[in-house]
Nucleic acid binder design. Sequence first.
DNA 1: TTTCCGTGCGCAATCGATTCCAAAACACCA
DNA 2: TGGTGTTTTGGAATCGATTGCGCACGGAAA
Lengths: 343, 343
Amino acid sequence: MKLGQATIKDIARELNLSVSTISRALKDYPGINRETKRKVKEVANKLNYRPNAIALSLRKSRSFTIGVIIPEVVHFFFSTVISGIEEIANSRGYNVILSQSNEKLDREISSLETMLTNQIDGVLVSYSKETKSFDHFTRVMDQGFPIVFFDRAPAIPDAVNVMVDDYQGSFDATAHLISQGYKNIVHLAGPKTLKISIDRENGYKDALEQNGFPVNPAHIISCPLGTLEESQELVSALLASLPRRPDAFFSCNDIGAVGAMMACRDAGLRIPLEVGIVGFSDWQFCAMLEPQLSSVSQPGFMMGTRATEILLDIIEKKLDPKIMEQSLVLETKLMERGSSKRF
Amino acid sequence: MKLGQATIKDIARELNLSVSTISRALKDYPGINRETKRKVKEVANKLNYRPNAIALSLRKSRSFTIGVIIPEVVHFFFSTVISGIEEIANSRGYNVILSQSNEKLDREISSLETMLTNQIDGVLVSYSKETKSFDHFTRVMDQGFPIVFFDRAPAIPDAVNVMVDDYQGSFDATAHLISQGYKNIVHLAGPKTLKISIDRENGYKDALEQNGFPVNPAHIISCPLGTLEESQELVSALLASLPRRPDAFFSCNDIGAVGAMMACRDAGLRIPLEVGIVGFSDWQFCAMLEPQLSSVSQPGFMMGTRATEILLDIIEKKLDPKIMEQSLVLETKLMERGSSKRF
DNA sequence: TTTCCGTGCGCAATCGATTCCAAAACACCA
DNA sequence: TGGTGTTTTGGAATCGATTGCGCACGGAAA
């Protein structure tokens, strides 16, 4: 904040009026002389006056700022969500303050604490992979502080969540692979701390069973890191070890799917002829690969806009979290591309 | 901001002390009885007291918040920069408020205005493609407000900039293509409103000339949109029209390079045998393509950290923008991969 | 007993803007 | 000229925390 910034006092001094008059004139209150208003605005303009939002926040006990806590910004899906959040927040006159936990619990906690200290009006959270207890959230929620969770829904009763239908997305992806004639479908699964991982795994399992395929535990590979190298190595090892070669991979994320793609290519397998691959999230690059990677598209931007709308409605008392629908589930869409289409 | 939040007044009432005593006790000022301090802290804890940063901001005329204005979040490079900004800001006790201009000038202006109203201590800016006049920046800079520009350096004398060496990066990329024996190198150029576009084009031209190749104007293709489709179409058209077929493409961004890659593939050209391709930015997906895309890597995270360090140093008066080095130029690194290596 | 000093604490101003409650200033009528 | 009503403006409290100044109170020295 610049020190030389003009305040209403400066305008008042210049015109020999009281601050109350200035305040009312600037806001076009009735009961102020038309000529006075004109002069006040003229001087305000001349002094380059800008209202001090901090002073307003203090007075109104409202900062018109919402916080966003996410695992990481450098992530196509999350940055898309942020974009949606920004869009709605801005259009409704709110600022967005951002903090990434880097998937660390302690950073998540300190971010929340800092934001509360800064009197934010509410917060949007996608919690970290490390987070197993949600006490730091429930403590502030119990005091009536508005929190909306997105993508990753916590195990908190009465929490307001905005998610995608991970189960159905997974189910669709797996069913698609089955319909393309793949018979030994491996699932690259995410960390069990995240509900989305569990949902995705369940969608995979149910799709298999409902199509008459037994679930083979050896076909569920845990990929806790979620890196390309991890899945590439795991898939390579799998291809070399399993007696009956897998002929399809459904990964819980796109990076893992690319790793599988590379491992298959290294093993000399043709995609999609000999191996089918489907990812999850539909990152930008899916359509750039050769063959193009099939993936479950998540409406990230919409998740951001909807979550923000709900949060702001709660903040502005248009919605009561206690009596509202607790979860909003957005639909996914399977993008069928070259990596999984044999016909 | 929650209404039920405890303040020092509440603590004062509970202990029958004055607010000044509470304030001093909480901050461990000398001259307060040891036992009093203990009790104050105990009650503060019991009431779940959290200091009101807004009140502090008002008093100190410092918000400990910096603003970031970028064209878009959903952009690998920018999100990497944000990550770096966040890192330093957090470690030095500052919040980050974010706003994206979506490459629109009016949004850029209103974002800046809102941030100033919110009394941010300084701002980091990468201006939009639409921005041709920089008056909205110079006006506040002239009042002594700290602004640091990153990636896209404006035509403002005395502005503090943190950029990468776009010229050298381009030069290296083009020289690399030449060294691989490519002889008809086309450049996919960005919008001329951005200094980075011009620098990259100049690097390309100089590398050609210094290696004895004349610059062919027909080999410089303007790609104002920067989309995959745009470059794909332009490159396809080029391949069909030019009498002497281009044998290499150096794109000012990775998306454009992928478009070129697709167009070449559509034309039945083998990469890198018949056509070499190099991009700029080194997005995540470059290493996932087949063949892997060569690209000029920009240190986005470091750009974020360095720009933030400089901004905070200026804010905290450790640096004076008037007497400091105006520009910090970070080095790029050419990632030579399959799309351009014939030998 | 008076003076002096250190300890421990309270009063009140301050940051910028809003807003309730009055109070001037003026016009108009009787 | 006094009363009434309207228009226009000012005073002061308020939001939460900080901080300079000063005031009690106690014990110790004179």
